[in-house]
Amino acid sequence: MQLPDPETLLAEITAKVQAQLQPNTALVGIHSGGVWLMNRILDSIKQDIPHGMLDAAFYRDDYAQRGLKTEPKPSNIAFDVTDKHIILIDDIFYTGRTTRAAMNELFDYGRPASIQLAVLINRGGGELPITPDIVGAEILLKPNQNLQLSQDTKGKLHLTLEASDA
């Protein structure tokens, strides 16, 4: 399968995010891919927008089955969430469960005015009534396929697709 160039997709969602900006907008990236994307978007639009990052590890619904991630990353929301229009940024949208966890965590910081979701790729397979508002590309994948975003030492983004036997 020919994968799209993530740099091109990033440029597309950057433009869409920029179009949505209001005086009260804040960006929140979800670790790790979402944070990379957010930082690149902030670099491009060159505006001083409040922003933060979330891990959502403590809000995941698979904790009872799988335990805590071995390397959780700190959440850091250094602005007041209340009454902000928040754009959540993630790399790959799949079941929607990470977004659910992230929204729950966000609400523990305060009451936002609205939340929108921007993702690089929607791979299909949603299990919750959540759909991304800003999407770079839609690529329908099978459950045994695993799409991963990575960042090289120069900051360039790459997509890899792996299939497992399971």
Partner: peptide, 13 residues
């Protein structure tokens, strides 16, 4: 990662 939780509005996860 839990140090920050105590500084939030809602100090619970």
């Amino acid at each position: 990662t839990f140090v920050g939780v105590a500084e939030r509005d809602i100090k619970k996860v």
